[in-house]
Simulated scan of single mutants.
Amino acid sequence: MTDLIPVFDGHNDALLRLYQSKDADPVARFIDGLPGGHIDLPRARKGGLAGGMFAIFPPPLETPGTRRAMNVADEVPPELARADALAPTLGMASILMRLERASDGAFTVCRSAGAVCAAMEKGSLAAVFHIEGVEAVDMDLVLLDVLHAAGLRSLGPVWSRPNAFAHGVPFRFPATPEIGPGLTEAGKALVKACNRLRILVDLSHLNAEGFRDVAKISDAPLVATHSNVHALCGHSRNLMDWQLAAIRDTGGLVGLNFATGFLREDGRMGADTGLDVMIRHLDALLEALGEGGVAFGSDFDGATVPAAIGDASGLPKLIEAMESAGYGRELIEKIAWRNWVDVLERTIG
């Protein structure tokens, strides 16, 4: 394929990278080109990255025990108090809005599937406001209304730590997501509120019991924005066969996570991971979900990705690998962007 196929990506952590940047003006640098990392505007254009879910992730506090708990398999990252989550959540939301203002039309915060298509059509990077871990939201969900008015259209109740709404699945290999209890009463109220407001509920990072609870409560398609197949990589973050079946039954979607530790059979985070491993996961997702249920959820700027891709500019390498594996143009376009637009239309409108 000689032309560049556009990609809508289900998950990136670019906002966290900008928030934590030491640069005097990280917004301008994102627009002009940032050193390192995975995403900026020039590399997005080069690689055909036409849009995606821009995640707000309130990071753990830097305490002596935090890094150990983040990296040791049998430990759970510590909970984050609401007061400690509020400033980074609002700070990253501000960066998202400033990117739109400063980009001269090259970056658009999209509040509907139609807006995503319109932005992509005019060559503007289509950003959907997403939160990963809603520790900043109060029990009365007052802030949820404010964030929705500001453009929030997708959220994951948890990252891989517990909070007042749910329990995240810690990073363990080998392990299943059958770790811990389900949604709290506040979490169930959150899911119902998201359905009313037409906010997509992301199941990635949620443990198995929380997944079951969302499946019982939600009237929207089940979506895991950045997860892989547990049968191929036995990481706790990946989806079991029964979870994939539940997603398929609702007309939902899974975004292939590029993080090598969720791709490889050995669970190792190593950039020396071949694109054939990604194709195996795509094949398995297609078998489990059908052609309409598979997409991308790269985890750019939040994980180690295969060196063959490197960053957003390397997305055509994955498209080429799909073509070499026998994927036709129509299927590639579905996975690259059309399936995301379809599920967004049926969730956020």
Rank of each mutant, 00 (worst) to 15 (best):
D219A: 09
E291D: 08
T273A: 10
A295Y: 06
S227Q: 04
A295P: 06
L232P: 07
L244F: 12
I247K: 12
L222R: 08
Q243L: 11
A271I: 00
R264K: 06
V214F: 14
R280M: 10
M278Q: 14
L285W: 05
N257C: 01
E291G: 02
F296H: 12
I279H: 10
V229A: 07
L282M: 02
G261E: 03
A245I: 13
A295M: 11
G293M: 01
D241A: 09
A288H: 10
A271Y: 02
T250N: 03
N238S: 11
D283I: 00
A231R: 10
G251R: 02
L244D: 13
I247E: 13
L263S: 06
L253W: 07
A271G: 12
A245P: 15
A259E: 12
M278V: 15
T225F: 00
G274S: 05
D241Y: 08
L275C: 02
G292C: 03
H235M: 02
F262E: 03
R264E: 06
N257K: 08
D241T: 09
A231V: 10
G255V: 04
F262W: 04
H230T: 12
Q243Y: 06
S227H: 12
F262C: 08
L263R: 02
D241H: 08
G290L: 08
S218E: 15
N257Y: 05
E287M: 01
V294C: 05
H281Q: 03
R237Y: 12
A224H: 09
I247D: 15
T250Q: 09
D276M: 10
A215G: 12
L263M: 13
L289D: 07
M269E: 05
I217L: 15
R264Q: 09
H281M: 07
G274A: 04
A220Y: 15
A288P: 07
R248L: 08
G292E: 11
L232N: 03
R237M: 06
V229Q: 00
D241F: 06
S236D: 01
N238C: 13
S227Y: 08
G292Q: 00
G293N: 02
S218T: 15
T260C: 02
D276K: 04
F296P: 03
A271F: 00
R268D: 12
A271R: 07
T225K: 03
V214H: 13
N228I: 11
S218I: 13
A271L: 09
D276L: 09
L232H: 01
A295R: 04
D299G: 02
A259N: 11
E265Q: 10
L256K: 08
A224W: 03
V294I: 01
L285D: 10
H281K: 02
R237T: 07
F258G: 05
E265Y: 05
A284L: 01
L282R: 02
P221K: 09
D283T: 04
M269F: 10
V294Y: 09
F258M: 13
R264M: 05
A245K: 15
L244V: 10
H281C: 01
G290S: 08
N228V: 12
H281Y: 06
K216E: 10
N257A: 06
I217A: 15
A259H: 11
A288N: 09
A295H: 03
T260L: 05
A231I: 11
D272W: 14
V294A: 09
N228R: 02
F296G: 07
